[in-house]
């Protein structure tokens, strides 16, 4: 299932790419004029992602691994357009995400990105069906079609008989499957999942991963996880550490896997 990481100029651009991306978060707020007069120093910063480059192609499942604080979630958020980089460029289907307005990025996520969280983040007061159908409401899809599409997807993830249940009435595994159905309902080109099995037991986690494997047609999936079994469904696993890519096994245009690292050149790697 490995996707072609082609450098051919005629081929379509990757679904998403990050080039020399750095993301720095500021802890607290910048001092204002009075604060500066009073000698308040600038708040501390945290570099969550440091000079990272990665490409995600259609049809591939890319795993992001690394210890806590390695920048997996931040990289996911950058690729999904939830954050903009401090430095470098994140492109989505060739478009520079940083050049888009907030509203345009929201629209981009609506139409092209599906997001699955570790803690599911379903809307508690809505049924499974209404949760799945919510993005379609924003798209202006009619009620009947929304309902039909949501039920089809819930059926597909094995929850055909739980469509009217609210999240509080579902198990963790069921909630995660609802979240997957929600992520797929707009037929996105990229699905990002942050620790999708982190809250689930082994069996349930395995079923959830099967859903991801089934969902790869014409789209790319990026999974961030600590869990090796979760990452095992990936076509490649990009390893991060302290915000930097330390390993990204990807085939070059000749079909040879090119282990890149933020720290090392290709030549250095082969030496």
């Amino acid at each position: 299932m490995a996707g072609p990481a082609s450098a051919n100029r005629a081929s379509p651009p990757p679904v998403a790419s990050a080039t020399d991306v750095t993301k720095v978060f500021i802890r607290g707020s910048e001092p204002g004029r009075i604060g500066r007069l009073l000698g308040r120093s600038a708040p501390p910063t945290v570099t969550a992602v440091d000079d990272v480059s990665i490409e995600i192609e259609t049809g591939e499942i890319v795993g992001l691994s690394g210890p806590s604080g390695s920048g997996k979630s931040t990289l996911l958020h950058l690729l999904a357009g939830l954050e903009v980089p401090t430095e470098g460029t994140v492109r989505f289907q060739g478009r520079d995400v940083a050049s888009l307005s907030n509203r345009q990025r929201t629209r981009l996520r609506l139409e092209h990105v599906g997001i699955v969280f570790q803690h599911f983040h379903l809307l508690e007061s809505l049924s499974a069906r209404a949760n799945v159908a919510l993005p379609l409401v924003e798209l202006g899809v009619g009620r009947r079609t929304r309902r039909q599409r949501a039920e089809t997807l819930l059926e597909r993830v094995g929850l055909g008989d739980r469509t009217g249940h609210r999240p509080g009435e579902l198990s963790g595994g069921e909630q995660q499957r609802v979240a997957i159905a929600r992520a797929l309902v707009t037929d996105p080109t990229l699905v990002v999942a942050d620790e999708p099995t982190g809250e689930l037991d082994t069996d349930t986690g395995r079923r959830v991963l099967e859903e991801f494997e089934r969902a790869t047609d014409d789209r790319a999936i990026v999974l961030a996880s600590h869990d090796e079994e979760t990452l095992a469904i990936s076509d490649r696993v990009v390893k991060l550490h302290d915000g930097r890519v330390v390993d990204d096994p990807r085939p070059d245009e000749k079909g040879v896997v090119d282990h890149r690292s933020g720290e090392r050149t290709v030549a250095e790697f082969h030496e």
């Binding site: 809307l123 508690e124 007061s125 809505l126 209404a130 919510l134 409401v137 924003e138 798209l139 202006g140 899809v141 009619g142 009620r143 929304r146 609210r166 509080g168």
Partner: peptide, 27 residues
């Protein structure tokens, strides 16, 4: 306009359902 209307009606409906559910069950 039709799509806009469908969206507005959809969110009104979601708002009503969400409020009812919150008032009677979740919140």
């Amino acid at each position: 306009i039709r799509t806009r209307l469908t969206r507005i009606v959809g969110f009104l409906s979601v708002g009503v359902r969400r409020t009812v559910a919150r008032a009677t069950a979740t919140d």
